[in-house]
Design a binder for these strands. Structure first.
Length: 742
RNA sequence: GGGCGAUUAGCUCAGUUGGUAGAGCAACAUGUUUACACCAUGAAGGUCACAGGUUCAAGUCCUGUAUCGCCCACCA
């Protein structure tokens, strides 16, 4: 017996060595898998690319553990498996992180460095961050194909992004428009609807009239925007105001000359406030909608720095805050203010910077989600090639038809709800780090393409694309699209997308949109959503709470296998997981338990027998070699075999149902409390006894059961199982490609 | 305002189509016996949030309530 079994299992001395063996074996790469897998059906997963903003956290560790389980399980079953890694440039997140760092160290801002120099700095940061991440992914034991690694901002992906932009522009789905966007004055960029976080804040609701002779009072929480009002909207059936509809009034509002038309619109709730709304088309998308229905013009009164623009009377040049106070003061002094109430309202803030979002009219690029277009080709059930559809319909049909299954199912409802509320997606950003909008201008000419048009005088759009635009292409841009590569043919659509439920809209829905539009297919057949990893008390892990558990720390202390198990057991899909260090520690003990089971089983097979009288053991007894076809079981062993077979059938079914938490727990329980506690204990007298048939039968069973346990546990605990395999299976094969026990 | 989820042993969670409540951890007692003290053996621990209903039978199905959590939303 290998002497290593005489000491407790040491993950530190094992894991890096084993990972190297796997990498050298070529089994991470579908092209160099054994014959059996080459002939197997393709099974592919793309890794949700971690942001190159720093290091991986427990959430990433959980994601890696789950995906590695899926891939290793399918690989053992003989599928042609591909798990494709990559990283995400994460545009605004990375840019602001580097910006903060530079400001802290050098006191400079990005404009002090200039676009080119600043981007060099970001690239350097991204590279360093990338290296850290790759190292962490390896430490987790991820059986991932590094030869196909991708980056959302590398050359190939740039070509994919530009091709996607050009194609969607030609289809009429990408357009440039002057529309109300969510402007983040702090980050100085537009953001999408999904990047808004609503915060509940106390506010004051002011009721007032524009002027003494104005017939209707209105209520607002933002008096400063009222210098941009062009109308007052009332409900068409509201008897109080019916008589005024169609009339127009002029007023001097705190020095600003405004003209207000009374319009009737269904969007107005007659029960709220005074039942009349001051319409500010330039600074509210609701109001912009009302304005467009009544052909009203729009007056912008707030600029990109959240300052009042010229022409706004006495508040011109003030920030919105002071401007609000000034207007309220003016209303009071003029005797126009009728009521001030305290209310709580949801205020829109930018997720990234925390800045209060200012709706502004701006010229930006959008993706039209409600515009019908002829889809060139489609494999999506219910949508025919050449049919007129909208992107929303594609997104809905992909899931409704069952072409995509979301686990857990309840997220399907949430997904539909999101689609129903979806508005055109603003994709241009006023930041530097990212894919530059592939559009060139020369005077009034516009060119959309893969590269600058020939000829002088063309300048490229200054803006970059929302990071989710490139992530949306991820399942196929990583496989070589727009080229019709072999990888694309074989591995797309991917089998499963496994990711956190928090990016269902940001990412999953966008992938469905982009893939449906550009490939005419679904990006994946199954979506498996995992939850958040919280601390032992159920709180989010954060720096300020100082409760962060670092995956690398856990791996160093207890090993990657234990860390992985702790992230799998005790949680189902879509549920948050509470993790404490004790939990990880418990599974470290399990690694060692397996180690000692190996020691017992191997030594028994090798003929070690304890001599009670002598008080010591020797290796003089007959050796028993594992026989996969052995059938001469004693009744007791036949019962054990049956039970083991039943267990395997059960867990194989549960693996297919993605119930990894159950499988992990059942294997843990069987190995420890059935196999070790009961079967091993009762084996001791049988092995040492005189009944040779019973002895052989029992040792055959021990070998068989232990091999099965090790194989079935391999997806969950790859390191310790692989390390033991070479001592269990003397043929020199590797566990990673051994056949899943049925 | 709309929607979703959770509530089962001290803690973390299972509980498949309704059929006498299960695991792990922790705690308790005991013990160094021929794998393992990163251990073993043993015992203990639950009005399945609450109230109704359907049923021969409900943790499971229906209705309602409470508490906690999450998501969505252009009541100015």
């Amino acid at each position: 017996m290998n002497q290593k079994f005489l000491k407790p299992y040491d993950p530190q001395a094992t894991e890096d060595r084993i990972y190297k063996l796997w990498e050298e074996s070529g089994f991470f790469n579908p092209d160099t898998l054994p014959e059996r897998n080459q002939k197997g059906e393709p099974y592919s997963i793309v890794l949700p690319p971690p942001n190159v903003t720093g290091t991986l956290h427990m959430g990433h560790a959980a994601m890696l553990a789950i995906e590695d389980i899926m891939i290793r399980y399918k690989r053992m079953q003989g599928f042609k498996t591909l798990w494709l890694p990559g990283t995400d440039h994460a545009a605004i997140a990375t840019q602001s992180k580097v910006e903060k760092e530079i400001e802290k160290k050098e006191g400079k801002r990005r404009h002090d460095l200039g676009r080119e120099e600043f981007l060099k700095r970001v690239d350097a940061f991204a590279q360093a961050s990338h290296d850290t991440i790759v190292n962490q992914v390896r430490k987790m034991g991820a059986s991932i194909d590094w030869s196909r690694e991708a980056f959302t901002l590398d050359e190939k992906r740039t070509r994919a992004v530009r091709t996607a932009f050009k194609t969607m522009h030609e289809l009429g789905l990408i357009y440039r428009g002057h529309r109300i966007v969510n402007w983040d004055p702090k980050g100085q960029t537009t953001i999408s609807d999904d990047e808004i976080v609503y915060e509940e804040r106390k506010a004051k609701l002011y009721t007032f009239k524009y002027s003494k002779d104005f017939p209707i009072s209105i209520a607002t929480t933002r008096p400063e925007t009222k210098v941009g009002d062009v109308a007052v909207a009332v409900h068409p059936e509201d008897v109080r105001y019916k008589k005024y509809v169609g009339q127009e009034f002029k007023a001097d509002f705190a020095g600003a000359q405004i003209s207000i038309k009374i319009v009737a619109d269904d969007a107005v709730d007659p029960e709220f406030g005074t039942g009349a709304v001051g319409v500010t088309p330039a600074h509210s998308s609701t109001d912009a909608d009302i304005a467009s229905r009544h052909s009203l013009n729009s007056v912008q009164v707030i600029d990109e720095f959240a300052k009042m623009m010229p022409g706004t009377g006495q508040v011109a040049g003030l920030k919105v805050g002071p401007a609000r106070e000034a207007i309220v003061k003016w209303l009071e002094e003029s005797g126009l203010l009728e009521k001030t109430e305290d209310i709580t309202q949801n205020i829109a803030t930018a997720e990234r910077t925390g800045g209060v979002v200012e709706p502004l009219p701006k010229l930006q690029w959008f993706i039209a989600v409600n515009k019908p277009f002829k889809i060139p080709n489609s494999n999506i059930p219910g949508i025919k090639s050449g049919q007129e559809v909208t992107l929303k319909q594609i997104m809905r049909a992909s899931v409704e038809s069952g072409a995509i299954k979301i686990i857990p199912e309840r997220f399907e409802k949430i997904y539909y709800h999101w689609i129903d509320n979806l508005r055109d997606w603003c994709i241009s950003r006023q930041i530097w780090y990212g894919h530059r909008v592939p559009v060139w201008y020369k005077g009034s000419e516009i060119s959309v393409g893969l590269e600058a048009p020939s000829g002088d005088g063309w300048t490229q759009d200054e803006d970059t694309l929302d990071t989710w635009f490139s992530s949306g292409l991820w399942t196929f841009s990583t496989l070589g699209w727009p080229d019709q590569t072999e990888d694309l043919k074989v591995f797309h659509p991917t089998a499963v997308l496994e990711t956190g439920y928090d990016i269902l809209f940001f990412w999953v829905a966008r992938m469905v949109l982009m893939t449906g539009c550009l490939i005419g297919d679904v990006p994946f057949k199954t979506v498996y959503l995992h939850g958040l990893v919280r601390d032992g008390k159920g709180r989010k892990m954060s720096k300020s709470l100082d409760n962060i558990i670092d995956p690398l720390d856990m791996i160093a202390k207890y090993g990657a296998d234990a860390t992985r198990l702790s992230l799998i057991i005790g949680t189902g899909p879509g549920n948050d997981l509470k993790l404490s260090e004790d939990k990880v520690k418990g599974y470290k003990n399990f690694s060692n338990k397996l180690w000692n089971i190996a020691r017992f089983v191997i030594s028994a097979a090798e003929g070690e027998r304890y001599d009670r009288e002598a008080g010591k053991s020797d290796f003089t007894a007959e050796k028993v070699e594992f026989d996969p076809h052995f059938s001469d079981w004693t009744p007791a062993d036949a019962a054990h075999v049956k039970k083991l077979d039943d267990l395997m059938a059960e867990i194989t079914k549960e693996m297919e149902e993605y119930k990894f938490y159950l499988v992990g727990e059942k294997l843990y329980h069987y190995a420890w409390h059935e196999f070790a506690d009961i079967i091993l204990e009762e084996s001791k007298p049988i092995i040492a006894g005189d009944d040779k048939k019973a002895m052989v039968s029992r040792i055959q069973f021990l070998l068989r059961a232990f091999r099965t346990i090790v194989q079935a546990l391999h997806p969950f605990m790859p390191y310790v199982t692989e390390e033991m395999w070479s001592d269990i299976d003397q043929k020199g094969s590797m566990l990673i490609v051994s056949e899943w026990p049925k």
